[in-house]
């Protein structure tokens, strides 16, 4: 199977799962923004995405994407380490960074696994903070024994971000995600072969705007609930 036993195939798996996750993040961000305007509206969405069969199926699918993305990342990294060899360079200069943004991009591009690990840690926290208390509680049937109620997502947000430690952790987490998908976006397009001399810059620009907007949407919610 070429998706597993060829280098480009493995990268295609990374790209497709990565792009799917970016798409998910986009929806997630849109949903969060609703919380800025209306608590009822937000809770309505929470209810809709509660312990319904389609939401559960989607969650399992999402988890599968994550796992696939992560497992392939580990495999690729191990292979790349082996290809690199055991001797390291005595002197190593980073070349050609046109500016701060570009430098960040370049750093991100060679630190994707590190960023991915930070993101995973953040994810565990996030799942504990929200998913465990919401969808999981509902599924387990302990929905009526806890406060706030699992379908009251708005309250959960308020409760979480009233604690400064979570605010800080979430901001770090969001920055890591931003760096990760800022590179990941155009990198995925490049791997799928939809890029070229002209479109490379365009995709990079689109990716930058997209990832920045999505992350800002998340960030605004965090800050709003932290301050107000």
């Amino acid at each position: 199977m070429w998706l597993i036993d060829s280098s480009i195939g493995r990268k295609v798996v990374m790209s497709v799962t990565g792009l799917a996750l970016i798409l998910f993040l986009t929806f997630h961000a849109c949903m969060n923004v609703v919380a800025l305007f209306s608590a009822e509206g937000y809770n309505m969405i929470c209810e809709f995405l509660g312990a319904n069969w389609y939401a559960v199926v989607a969650t399992v699918g999402l988890a599968a994407l994550m796992v696939l993305h992560f497992v392939f990342a580990i495999i690729l990294t191990l292979q790349n380490k082996r290809a690199r060899g055991t001797d390291n360079y005595e002197v190593s200069t980073k070349t050609n960074s046109d500016g701060l943004l570009d430098m960040g991009e370049r750093w991100a591009s060679s630190s994707m696994l590190l960023l991915g690990c930070i993101i995973c840690l953040g994810l565990i926290l996030h799942l504990y903070n929200f998913w465990y208390n919401m969808m999981w509680s509902e599924l387990m049937g302990n929905a009526y024994t806890q406060l706030p109620s699992p379908s009251d997502g708005y309250a959960w947000i308020e409760q979480t971000f009233s604690q400064p430690v979570f605010v800080v952790l979430y901001i770090i987490w969001l920055c890591a995600i931003w760096l990760h998908i800022n590179h990941g976006f155009w990198s995925a397009i490049q791997t799928l072969g939809w890029s070229g001399k002209i479109w490379h810059n365009r995709w990079q620009c689109i990716g930058f705007i997209w990832s920045t907007v999505v992350i800002l949407m998340f960030l605004v919610v965090v800050i709003k609930f932290a301050i107000f």
Binding site: N80, A83, S109, S110, Q190, T191, K197, H200
Partner: peptide
């Protein structure tokens, strides 16, 4: 190894090959 689009290659290529080729 597998390409992870870090662009280090095109930055050092003495003949200015670009990653558009990789795409």
């Amino acid at each position: 190894g597998n390409c992870t689009n870090t662009r280090a290659c095109e930055a050092v290529c003495p003949k200015n090959e670009t990653i558009a080729n990789i795409a």
